[in-house]
Design a protein around this nucleic acid. Structure first.
Ligand SMILES: [Mn+2]
Ligand SMILES: [Mn+2]
Ligand SMILES: [Zn+2]
Ligand SMILES: [Zn+2]
Lengths: 154, 154
DNA sequence: TTTCTAATTTGCAACTGATGCTAACTAGCA
DNA sequence: TGCTAGTTAGCATCAGTTGCAAATTAGAAA
């Protein structure tokens, strides 16, 4: 996603208004690597702007996504996550704490369909599931046999 | 997922009852490649057993999933899909008709995390999005430039 | 067969995440 | 300073799913 300043320009050019709500969200999303939900953004936004509506959060996120400034990430658990990183990349989801981390496309081989019945593929999404560092450390009480299978190394 | 007969044995062994509802669902799911939703199973089940409850469908699907007989597939659009194919495989989702097709793991390179910060990966899911054969054919009215980018070949 | 009861089904309430609708509000221009 | 198209916020509503408890029943025991 572009910087708040650049987005401001984009919005002006499209005769969209630069409301305080939108500006706040621009700043909350810029360089945000946490893959937040609408709800979690609502919480932090509410601190800086009490009374802001969850409806407006959804509205603005939807607009940004439609403009291609945000990527929607749905990993099948709970709410949609919003990702200002619009570069081609994949995700690791921690099954314990639900945290989502970016997985650089270089780290995973480029996927392509070798066979198939003539599917026209537009995009490929890879989701790695497992346990993050923090959660693995906290889980030392579990039986050794129940550890995750593959440990990725740098 | 195992055959209805095998499942019957499993259920008996666990002193779970072999109700007509369960037996019907076993048969509806066996070798079902359509990745049905609970709702769609409810519809076909209702024809053979009018009055069956949607709640029971959810209940039974949940049990089978917990027993490892079914795989839950969530591709981020609408309802959860249920997959009796529990072999390791991936999915192609048609963005037009929402159909889901199996993508054999052999067709796509085995994924693994090369870098990362010590994530312990349990499973990898790959979702290919695009347009299926049928939908591509029906979309000949669209501008040529808007075609899908990659056409998979056998 | 009949009886018994733990397992199951069912209907309905409730819940989460998200969107539709619209009256009230306001950014930004004239 | 006023105007107005665009925006916000509140509330209703929706889809998908789960919680709950009363009614039903599979299957073992008598
Ligand atoms: Mn990301
Ligand atoms: Mn499948
Ligand atoms: Zn974690
Ligand atoms: Zn299709």
């Amino acid at each position: 996603m572009r910087s708040p300043t650049e987005l401001a320009q984009v919005f002006r050019d499209k005769q969209l208004k630069l409301t305080p709500q939108r500006q706040l969200l621009f700043s909350l999303l810029h360089q945000n690597q946490s893959h937040p939900t609408a709800e979690s953004l609502y919480e932090v936004a509410s601190k800086q702007m009490p009374g802001i509506s969850l409806r407006t959060i959804y509205q603005t996120l939807g607009e940004l996504a439609e403009m291609g400034e945000l990527q929607l990430v749905d990993v099948g658990i709970g709410a949609t996550r919003f990702d200002p990183n619009i570069a081609d990349h994949h995700h690791f989801v921690c099954e314990s704490c639900q945290a989502i981390h970016d997985v650089d496309i270089l780290s995973a081989p480029k996927m392509s369909l070798q066979s198939g019945e003539g599917f026209a593929v537009n995009e490929v999404g890879v989701v790695f599931r497992g346990h993050c560092n923090q959660c693995n450390h906290k889980q030392q009480f579990k039986s050794p046999g129940s550890q995750a299978k593959n440990k990725a190394s740098k």
